[in-house]
Design a protein around this nucleic acid. Structure first.
Lengths: 328, 328
DNA sequence: GTGAAAGCGCTAACAA
DNA sequence: TTGTTAGCGCTTTCAC
């Protein structure tokens, strides 16, 4: 059996309460007994039992993370940042993957609640009043990231809309006459929470309007590649293909290469995310970069502050930057 | 407050023990009371408290994962597979990242043990007799993946050596006369556990010998790119650059492109891992593929079987396949 | 078939 | 300063 505080108490000839006082730096104990207990604990290689502590304290020192999956590079980077910051602050991380399934996501959340996590970092696909109320039923701190839920929930993210608008400004300055917008997740509008994607799209449309660009072709379905396969590029005008994530941009790039459409001479491509793999791809993809690691770290810091001191650390929308590659 | 079994007991006019019998499908209870309790639990929206259950059962229904980081695509895929399989089997996953730091790894392991995880899936950088003994001190099931520790520990992986040897056979069949081997982790030989990398290297050397190839140039340091920058390729002979992971291969490819060394005409490249990003890279990298998802799933199944039924499910080394691209 | 009681390892309130 | 006691919510043993 593992050594418990009782064992230490017996060895030192004191009570369990006193051992607890020594071990956890509580007041009301003499230096002498504290040292004695501490030394005994050391010698006996005492390791505290977190499950017992959790039960009595109602705290587990763990954070639950609800994510789609780890397929997207950015998610992996995010998760990496979260784990590091969390453990630095003394917390462990439960990772749960929802596969973008709303019901599955609720199951994940409930499981986390039942396991008494101290807080949840939530990248949700759910939305709406009902979900908002659902979340409120749990009295557990929650920080939302990327997909906004409502004013009721702390949020860490970037100014998606502004970022995409600036991207359009940048493209417009390059004399593109035609615009195509690629964002298959938009097909889920109304059905699931695609806040970030919607914001990017709104930003795109704002940019189009502000730059007096012609009406763009918007591909908001999974068949965007087929559509692009059939698309006839006007040789007299340059077309800009704006993709809501780098992954779509790379797919588009592959297709254009296959079709022998010169990039960016005939068609330009821009992505969003700045995933690290871009460094191996040519032509270098132009994209929008945002501080993914910071998002993870800030989310953890905010929620831990809420847990330990009662208030979130509100994080203003973080910055972004257009990475100028050779693709547009 | 949350509803507990006591509350249900009070409502139903039975004892807590009886509620437990009903809730957990235990014997010694009439259908009638069972139904009554179950219904009450349903109505009261009872949610079991895992921390309490963990304390009394000594089990937490959680698996601890010890990984380097999530930077490498394969790790993310692995983690993804592990989470899915684990939750399918009713387990939650604590993720801990070691950043390849041996001491940090031990801290992770000990934290996991203190949190009473039921099992640990370990991708270690530690090694040796002392570490072996260290692990034995914990009476927690452990499955090692990728980096082998010793016969004492269950292991899930592939036949790294054989895979690399076959890769060399394949290359040799293509009339390459010069061989360069790239594997910076080899610099840590003796210092940390680089089992997979060592095995791949041994396989490479075996392949070289068997094919009567000339003595290869082995780059086993972080400065491999500088070395390759200065390397003079013999225009009369094709050089094969064998990389121990895709990431190194991509770096090498970038460098060769910069140097305008024609691939694979003058220099061929082969990687290892078959990361999914390869589909966006041209020329298509030739590489060795192995079932990363299966490794994760099998590791989970094996350890859960050990936890619940007392024995691991030994997994024979899994298969691999050479993915023939255009880079060699 | 059911209830009562003990206890998992720890914390915290109250006595002494 | 220290010990005692009563739980946290659940499981389990032993009476009845």
């Amino acid at each position: 059996m593992r050594v418990t505080i009782k064992d230490i108490a017996a060895v030192c000839g004191v009570s369990a309460g006193t051992v607890d006082r020594a071990l956890n730096n509580r007041s009301g104990i003499s230096e002498k007994t504290r040292n004695k207990v501490l030394q005994a604990a050391e010698e006996m290689n005492y390791q505290p039992d977190f499950t017992a502590r959790s039960l009595v304290m109602g705290r587990t020192m763990t954070l639950g993370i609800v994510l789609f999956d780890l397929y997207n590079r950015s998610f992996a980077q995010l998760m990496n940042a979260i784990e590091q910051k969390a453990r630095e602050l003394g917390y462990f991380v439960y990772i749960t993957l929802t596969d973008k399934n709303p019901e599955n996501e609720r199951t994940c959340i409930e499981y986390l609640i039942n396991r008494k996590v101290d807080g949840i970092i939530l990248f949700t696909v759910n939305q709406g009043k009902e979900f908002d109320a659902y979340l409120s039923r749990f009295h557990t701190p929650i920080v939302t990231i990327f997909n906004y839920v409502s004013i009721n929930w702390e949020y860490v993210g970037i100014h998606e809309r502004q970022a995409m608008k600036e991207a359009v400004d940048y493209i417009a300055s390059k004399k593109y006459k035609q615009f195509i917008y690629v964002s298959p997740p938009l097909a889920y509008a109304g059905k699931s929470n695609i806040y970030t994607q919607e914001e990017r799209f709104i930003g795109f449309m704002e940019g189009i309007e502000l730059n007096n660009a012609p009406k763009p072709l918007v591909l908001k379905d999974a068949d965007y590649l087929e559509k692009l396969q059939d698309y006839s590029f006007n040789p007299a005008e340059k077309t800009a293909i704006v993709c809501s994530t780098d992954l779509y941009a790379l797919e588009v790039m592959n297709l254009l290469k296959e079709r022998n459409v010169p990039i960016p001479k005939q068609a330009g491509i821009i992505g969003f995310d700045d995933i690290d793999m871009l460094k191996y791809i040519s032509p270098r993809l132009t994209t929008v970069k945002y501080p993914i690691v910071e998002i993870g770290e800030k989310a953890v810091e905010s929620i831990v502050n809420k847990i330990e001191r009662g208030t979130y650390i509100s994080v203003p929308l973080l910055g972004h930057e257009i990475i100028k590659g050779e693709s547009i």
